[in-house]
Amino acid sequence: MPESVDAWQLIAGGDATLFAIVRLSLAVSLSAVAIAVLVGLPLGALLALTRFPGRSAMIVVLNGFMGLPPVVVGLTVYLLLSRSGPLGEFGLLFTPAAMVIAQALLVLPIIAALARQTIEDLWSEYRDELTAMGVSPAGRVATLLWDSRFSLVTALLAGFGRAAAEVGTVMIVGGNIEGFTRTMTTTIALETSKGNLPLAMGLGIILIGIIIAINAAAWGLRLWSERRAG
């Protein structure tokens, strides 16, 4: 990125490097959330609707993992994906895929735990009606997921916010390689270490703006569609 320019000039000038970085950040975080949703929603539903030994312990662990330290997740994924690690043969370390995996692990507990809570609450409300209507277990899960979709979107946004804002895992497993694994947050960290504080701050404001814009869009859609569906 050119020196002695501030963030506003970068935006106004449609700086290609900046857009590549923003695009990568969004791609990584959204992919991570998508994976976490695919795994986390069924996991949350399973925990909400089934009873098995160790379930309580699992819920406690899951809730605790909502606060997983990103650096620890990063280090763990680093050791797994490193050429010397068990998954080294895939050569994923220092690639966007590694960042997606690490962020997905970071986000998964948030989505699974919030989904578990949401679905369990709704289930206690729906249990009698659905049982009386003879709904199959799979049908129950589908119904509960669909009917709690507004709350689940909030869980999804919480997950996205965590993924988009964190720097610890992407720095470690991505390596902050220019044009390849450099995201908004690692750029901010890098510019800070270069002493380029105005640019770092400007990028930070852009990042916050993007996160707020995505949340505002989701919130608006939620209000609008909730009014229609109850």
Binding site: L24, A27, V28, A34, V100
Partner: peptide, 11 residues
């Protein structure tokens, strides 16, 4: 999300 992901291999 899918469009975003599709950009990754291109990089």
């Amino acid at each position: 999300a899918m469009i975003a992901v599709s950009g990754i291999p291109a990089m």
